[in-house]
Design a protein around this nucleic acid. Structure first.
Lengths: 189, 189
DNA sequence: AAGAAAAATTTACAAATGATAAGAAATCAC
DNA sequence: GTGATTTCTTATCATTTGTAAATTTTTCTT
């Protein structure tokens, strides 16, 4: 299972053929292996990526522990938000959890298009809006539910994620330790 | 202390006089009292607001407790994100914590301008991007730090907030109970 | 200014989660 | 396929945070 770039772009905000072509002409395909560190938090990232095939995670480090706060799979957009938005170092590292095929787009090319093409500008708006809604509901969900409830919800809404990603990453995504998640999983048996 | 609408708009994304005028021509000023419920989660909100003067909070309810997840003060934009982005019921209630003066803008007028004026489209993009960065770092901060650290950080970065808002709201914003926050405050004396 | 109402604090106890360590299971590398 | 490495689970104990109730403090109303 994989996703074509045209479909990925349209799912964010439907574009005319012309504007879509403008975007796609600046996009190239890259294949990278599992464990590759695509984005590092100590440098400015000059590209955006779209996942054609595979799954990735974004994490920050606190002391020696890694905290995963986002997963991206087929159809998702992979960006270092602080690089993309503020042209500053990001807080996130992004690691490939499977061999991946990605579409890559130069951030500065995209910025140019924002000022030239109103459809692309609205595509960029919609992209940020959709990410915002997702982040905000994830944040509220965190506040509203216990770790156990959050895990059960993840089980029912994203069962594929649980299968493709190792438990430790799921745990930190849920905001708990792997030990704690093991307890929860044992309870549910 | 209060903020003029032109400055608020420019702080998000600098606009030409022409585009700024297009926006401002659709904006009107409203004065509303403390405790007024500006936005309710059981209806679609058709306006955006900008805070000229005052402070507000967004909250959701879990069983009988209210969970505050956002504060907005002078210069901030007040929107029901799910209404604004998806034209659906929001998850948030927004309550005025002081007598407020707000600038109101029709959401549908803004949507029209997005398709007509590329500057406004980019203004809308930047607005969503800035909110996204804020929400994302708030989310990561939650995962990274203990309640005590989060309170200390709030004390040093937003001391005015602590003074203007009652402790119970601060507690739920930090993701803890008022009792827990009292303990932390007692420790810091 | 006085009384009422709401909010904040304190205390005692319960529940959830974290830390550490040891063993079992799964995965990786050759 | 086998041994080595990593990940997951289980158990124990410590810490943090929650819940409930009583008390103090602050704010609101008249």
């Amino acid at each position: 299972m994989h996703m074509e770039i045209g479909e990925i772009l349209d799912n964010i905000y439907p574009l005319s053929d012309l504007s879509k072509e403008k975007l796609i002409s600046h996009i190239s395909e890259v294949v990278l292996p599992k464990r590759h560190l695509l984005i590092k938090n100590d440098r400015i990232e000059h590209k955006l990526y779209f996942v054609k095939k595979g799954i990735v995670r974004a994490y920050t480090t606190k002391d020696d522990t890694e905290i995963t706060f986002w997963f991206g799979k087929e159809g998702d957009t992979v960006v270092s938000m602080n690089s993309y938005i503020n042209q500053q170092f990001g807080y996130e590292n992004i690691e490939l959890l499977e061999d991946c095929t990605l579409y890559a787009l130069s951030s500065s090319r995209l910025q140019e298009l924002f000022t030239q093409d109103i459809e692309v500008a609205n595509w960029g708006r919609k992209f940020a809006e959709l990410e915002l809604i997702k982040t905000e509901s994830q944040f509220i969900n965190r506040q509203l539910r216990s770790a156990k409830e959050r895990y059960e919800e993840l089980l029912s809404t994203k069962p594929d994620l649980i299968n493709r990603v190792q438990v430790g990453h799921i745990a930190s995504y849920l905001g708990i330790t792997p030990v704690s998640l093991s307890r929860i999983r044992a309870q549910l048996k």
